[in-house]
Simulated assay, not measured.
Amino acid sequence: MVESVGGRPGEMVGSDASHDVNDAVKFEISALRAEIASIRATLSDFGADTYQRVSKNAEQAAHYVQDEAVSVAGAIREHPATATTLMTVIAGIGFAIGYLVATTNLEQKQAWYRRYY
């Protein structure tokens, strides 16, 4: 064992061991920080690529919707009577479906009240 002058036996060895442990911990922390920086850079690149792809697809979708809207508007301008008839039929079908759902729902609520009262 190595002894320090004026100290207790083994004090120097313990001190060297704690410095080795501290150095090892510092090295591990610096390695982890470097790994985190690498992961951040990778995710940043991935996020930028994903953003560019999503942006491009959204732009294409917007152009497609705009072209279709222009096409529908043109068809409505050329055939206003047909468009009005079509919208009236669609509205009537929607009203009928809503009415049937509401009356069915009302009958179920009345049946529930009849069971308990």
Results as ranks from 00 to 15, higher is better:
residue 1 M to E: 09
residue 1 M to K: 04
residue 1 M to S: 14
residue 2 V to G: 05
residue 2 V to C: 08
residue 3 E to W: 03
residue 3 E to F: 00
residue 5 V to F: 13
residue 5 V to R: 00
residue 6 G to H: 02
residue 9 P to M: 12
residue 9 P to N: 11
residue 9 P to S: 15
residue 10 G to Q: 03
residue 11 E to T: 04
residue 12 M to T: 09
residue 12 M to H: 07
residue 12 M to S: 09
residue 13 V to F: 01
residue 14 G to A: 03
residue 16 D to N: 11
residue 16 D to L: 14
residue 17 A to F: 10
residue 18 S to N: 11
residue 19 H to W: 06
residue 20 D to N: 15
residue 20 D to C: 12
residue 21 V to H: 12
residue 24 A to W: 09
residue 24 A to D: 12
residue 24 A to N: 12
residue 27 F to H: 13
residue 28 E to L: 11
residue 29 I to N: 11
residue 30 S to K: 09
residue 30 S to I: 06
residue 31 A to E: 15
residue 32 L to M: 15
residue 32 L to E: 15
residue 33 R to N: 14
residue 33 R to L: 09
residue 35 E to A: 14
residue 37 A to M: 03
residue 37 A to K: 04
residue 38 S to N: 08
residue 39 I to M: 07
residue 40 R to M: 08
residue 42 T to F: 04
residue 42 T to H: 08
residue 42 T to K: 07
residue 43 L to E: 07
residue 44 S to Q: 08
residue 45 D to M: 08
residue 45 D to R: 07
residue 45 D to P: 00
residue 53 R to V: 06
residue 59 E to S: 06
residue 59 E to H: 02
residue 60 Q to H: 01
residue 62 A to S: 10
residue 62 A to H: 02
residue 63 H to K: 07
residue 65 V to T: 05
residue 66 Q to A: 14
residue 66 Q to W: 05
residue 68 E to K: 05
residue 70 V to K: 03
residue 74 G to K: 06
residue 75 A to M: 11
residue 75 A to Y: 05
residue 75 A to R: 11
residue 76 I to S: 01
residue 79 H to F: 14
residue 79 H to Y: 09
residue 80 P to D: 04
residue 83 A to R: 01
residue 86 L to F: 10
residue 86 L to Q: 08
residue 89 V to F: 05
residue 90 I to D: 09
residue 90 I to A: 14
residue 90 I to K: 14
residue 91 A to V: 02
residue 91 A to N: 08
residue 92 G to C: 11
residue 93 I to L: 12
residue 93 I to P: 04
residue 96 A to G: 01
residue 103 T to L: 13
residue 103 T to S: 14
residue 104 T to S: 15
residue 105 N to D: 15
residue 105 N to A: 15
residue 105 N to C: 14
residue 106 L to R: 15
residue 107 E to Y: 07
residue 108 Q to D: 10
residue 113 Y to I: 13
residue 113 Y to L: 15
residue 113 Y to K: 14
residue 115 R to V: 02
residue 115 R to S: 09
residue 116 Y to E: 08
